[in-house]
Amino acid sequence: MKKIMIAMLVIASCSAVAQEGHRHGPRHSEDPLTPEQVATLQTKRMTLALDLTQAQQEEVQKFHLENARLRKEKKEARKEERNKESAKVLSADERFSRESERLDHMIASKEKMK
């Protein structure tokens, strides 16, 4: 009986340790990429996928740079807001307005890419 209990404890502890997970990759690095670097990488990925011409690459680079800067500004604003009011819960109207703004931006971005 003791051996079975010990084996169960060993298995439980091993599975608990295996669940921890590590933070790897650019999203969790201490030194995040600049908006210019993000835009360049996105443009290169798109060039590889779609065989863009040089003129198209320049236009897409501008588009990605604008979006990367906007995302960084929004991220910093959310971080400041979170630090200022740590326990604030958004009302339904605030959530709706944020989601609506985000979707409007996505629609405009899609039209601009066309």
Rank of each mutant, 00 (worst) to 15 (best):
E66W: 00
E99A: 05
S97H: 11
E80R: 15
T47K: 09
A87W: 02
T40D: 06
E99R: 08
E20K: 14
A18V: 03
E30Q: 10
A12Y: 03
H24D: 02
E59S: 10
L48T: 06
L33H: 08
A18L: 10
K79D: 04
R95S: 10
E36N: 03
T34Q: 05
M113R: 11
R95T: 14
S15G: 01
K2T: 06
R98N: 15
H64I: 02
S13G: 04
K84H: 05
E36M: 05
E66S: 12
E101C: 02
E80Q: 15
E76F: 12
M1G: 15
R78K: 13
S100T: 07
V89Q: 09
V10T: 10
K75V: 02
A87H: 05
K2I: 12
H105C: 02
T40V: 04
K62M: 01
Q37S: 09
V89H: 10
T40K: 03
H64N: 15
A12N: 06
T53S: 15
E85Q: 14
I107S: 03
K110E: 09
A87F: 05
S29V: 12
A18W: 11
R45K: 15
Q42I: 00
V10Y: 04
V17L: 12
I11N: 01
E81D: 11
S86C: 01
E58H: 03
P26Q: 14
E66Q: 12
G21C: 05
L50N: 13
V17S: 10
T34Y: 02
V89R: 13
L48Y: 09
M8H: 05
A77I: 04
E80A: 15
R71H: 13
K74E: 14
E59M: 05
H24K: 07
I4L: 15
R98V: 03
K2E: 11
M5H: 07
H64P: 00
R45F: 11
K74N: 14
E58F: 02
V38G: 01
Q19L: 11
S13L: 08
P26M: 13
L41G: 01
D93Q: 13
I107H: 12
N67S: 08
D51F: 13
Q61I: 00
S109Q: 14
R102V: 01
K79A: 12
K75Q: 13
K44Y: 07
K72S: 10
S86Q: 06
H22N: 06
K75L: 04
A87D: 08
E59A: 06
D93N: 07
A55D: 12
A16C: 04
K88L: 06
Q42P: 02
L9K: 03
P26W: 13
L50G: 01
A87N: 10
H24Y: 14
C14M: 15
T40C: 00
T47W: 01
L50A: 15
E66K: 12
S100I: 01
K88E: 02
K44V: 11
E94N: 03
R45T: 10
E111I: 08
E73G: 03
P32D: 03
K88I: 03
